[in-house]
């Protein structure tokens, strides 16, 4: 497995910190067998906190920027329908470029580090969020918009008081997919030298304890973000839970 990664040694960095100290701590034989060692995990858990924090930062920043860009584009395209096709095509191309390839393409331009990783991560959120916002706005019943205009709401009021609130469930759905995708992709950010949970994972892929903890934290982070967006959505859309009398 490390052979496959050997072709990109330039990218891998800072793994030394995670090389096991096979001598230290209890359960030394478990560690030297590359096993799942609870004692080792307890002793070394704190060393995963920095990569986890970095992972959260990578993900949240990418989501925030990706959301701002796609939401703005979607609002523009909602009134100017001709914009939809080109935006979907462009973000679709970005979406299909393999992430590692994108890192490589960006390295000569933006160099190693946070910026390169963010550009790649943000690119992957665009299509998902844009499509969901447009779908959500399109799904607002036309009679509701008609009544809003007929009562004297202007275009901006119709958008912010009627269309966007009613599109929230769909927008949140897009954000949730984008969040889980980004958490996964952010574990490749270390190839761009941007840290994150990818650092410990790729530093010692053979050590099950290591992969289990780092991978597990990735999964937990994805679940936590997903539930967070869901909770906020439910808080903002009380009417979706109103039971028909």
């Amino acid at each position: 497995m490390s052979g496959a990664l050997g072709s990109i040694p330039l990218l891998a960095q800072g793994g030394e910190g995670f090389v096991r100290n096979r001598e230290s701590g209890s359960g030394a034989s478990c560690v030297s067998d590359d096993g799942v060692c609870p004692a080792w995990i307890v002793d070394h858990f704190d060393r995963y906190m920095e990569p986890l924090g970095r992972h959260v930062l990578l993900t949240v920043v990418a989501l925030a920027i990706g959301f701002s860009i796609s939401f703005t584009l979607a609002l523009l395209a909602h009134r100017r329908r001709w914009l939809i096709a080109p935006v979907v095509q462009l973000t679709g191309i970005l979406y299909t470029i393999p992430s590692l390839a994108l890192f490589f393409l960006l390295l000569p331009i933006t160099g190693r580090g946070f910026l390169t990783a963010e550009i790649a991560l943000v690119s992957y959120t665009l299509l998902i969020i844009f499509r969901n916002v447009v779908t959500g706005l399109d799904g607002v019943p036309s009679d509701v918009v008609d009544a809003a205009r007929g009562m004297g709401l202007n275009d901006r009021q119709v958008l912010w008081r009627v269309e966007i609130p009613l599109a929230l469930p769909e927008i949140a759905a897009g954000l949730r997919i984008a969040a889980t995708t980004t958490v996964g992709l952010a574990s490749l950010a270390f190839f761009a030298g941007a840290g994150g949970l990818g650092d410990p994972i790729y530093a010692d892929l053979n050590f099950k304890s290591n992969v289990l903890v780092a991978g597990g934290l990735c999964v937990l982070l994805a679940i936590a973000l997903d539930l967070l967006v869901l909770a906020v959505q439910r808080l903002l859309t009380p009417w979706t839970r109103a039971v028909p009398a």
């Binding site: 019943p141 008609d146 809003a148 009562m151």
Partner: peptide
Amino acid sequence: AELRRDIGYVIQQTGLFPHRTIAENVATV
């Protein structure tokens, strides 16, 4: 928009705001 606030508007599909309570709907204008 100003003209419309002075003219009551009722349509067959009602066009009630699903995300607003009945009181909020009535209070729109």
